[in-house]
Amino acid sequence: MLGAGLAHAATPEAYDPWPGLVQDIFKSRPIHDGSGVIAIEMPYRAEDAAIVPVTLRSKLAPDDGRRMLSITIVIDQNPAPMAARFELGPDANVMEISTRVRVNNYTDVHAVAELSDGQLYVAKTYVKASGGCSAPAARNADEARGRLGQMRYRQFKRPGAAGGAREAQIMIGHPNNSGLQMDQITQLYIPAFFVNELRLWQDDSLLLAIEGGISLSEDPNIRFTYASNGAKRFRAEAKDTGGHTFRNEWKIDDPGM
């Protein structure tokens, strides 16, 4: 019994990467409890570690004088922990963002919001998933090349939404290779190749500017709410690590929808 007790006492605690990530990603800035500022929603146990849904939601009250400037998703145990950073357009009133990410190990996932008061606020959740960054691509190489840079835009009706909120979705055909996936034929690792920048506008007013990494899933998919400014066009521009730039725009038939 004594020996068992000593062995238990000598077992090191699980390593927590979060303090080091605060230093590396946020330059050791103070980060406050964000329970009244930002919410993050993910499944506790993911069905597919390569496409784990995540939703970010502002909890700021309508009469709060502060504005959310950006939200950063950090998947603590991933090889490249910063999954995405969303810069919110100054007049877009983006209140909710959903996307899909890869999760490589059981991990905490943090959402860090920067507000117009100059402070950072954090919320976190825990996800049980493994192998998402090394999972084989869902599409073969030829199909992925054929879809490269193809964009689709959808707009959704939100009857009775507070403040006239709109909801839209942008989808980009791209393998978003993580650099950790193996070619099943050559048995060689496929080089990292992913969308690292995406910008969205209604007419010339910025809605979202997104910095992405290897943790965003194949065929990046961003769904978000925003306030319409009566624009007639929705525009998108994406760039990837291979030096490609993809652009598209769509007519908004009923901007007041």
Rank of each mutant, 00 (worst) to 15 (best):
V52D: 00
R100Y: 10
L216F: 07
A135Y: 09
Q187P: 05
R85L: 08
A165V: 05
M171T: 10
F86N: 04
N140S: 15
P81A: 12
Y121F: 09
E218V: 04
L188I: 15
I252K: 03
P12N: 11
F193P: 08
P43R: 05
K157I: 11
T125L: 02
E237P: 01
Q23L: 14
A49E: 04
E143K: 13
N177W: 15
E167P: 00
D253H: 13
L115C: 12
R29E: 02
L60V: 04
P79A: 05
S35Y: 08
R85Q: 10
G5D: 06
V94I: 05
A7M: 13
I25P: 03
I222L: 10
Q202L: 09
R100V: 08
Q150G: 14
P191N: 09
R139G: 07
Q23V: 12
D142I: 14
G164T: 13
L198H: 01
K239M: 09
T245H: 07
A144H: 14
I40R: 00
A161K: 09
W201D: 05
P220I: 07
E143D: 15
L6I: 08
L115W: 03
F234T: 05
I190E: 12
S134G: 15
G212W: 04
L88K: 00
Y226K: 02
I172H: 13
S228K: 05
A129G: 12
P30C: 06
A7D: 14
R152I: 14
G132R: 00
F234M: 08
P220R: 03
V22R: 02
A129L: 11
R233I: 03
P62K: 06
V122D: 15
R45V: 04
R166I: 02
G65A: 04
F156N: 02
F194W: 09
D16W: 02
E197R: 09
D33F: 04
Q169V: 08
R139T: 04
K232H: 15
I210T: 10
A238P: 03
T125C: 05
R100G: 09
A227C: 06
E47K: 03
P79I: 03
M68I: 04
I31V: 11
Q181Y: 12
N229S: 05
V101E: 12
S228D: 02
A46W: 02
D253L: 08
A49W: 00
S228G: 04
N93F: 09
T225Y: 03
V54L: 00
R166D: 00
A236N: 03
G163W: 03
R247V: 13
E87R: 12
Q184E: 14
H174P: 07
V127F: 00
P19A: 09
E249V: 06
V101C: 09
D16F: 02
M171V: 06
K239S: 07
K232T: 15
G243T: 08
L2P: 04
E13W: 14
L198K: 01
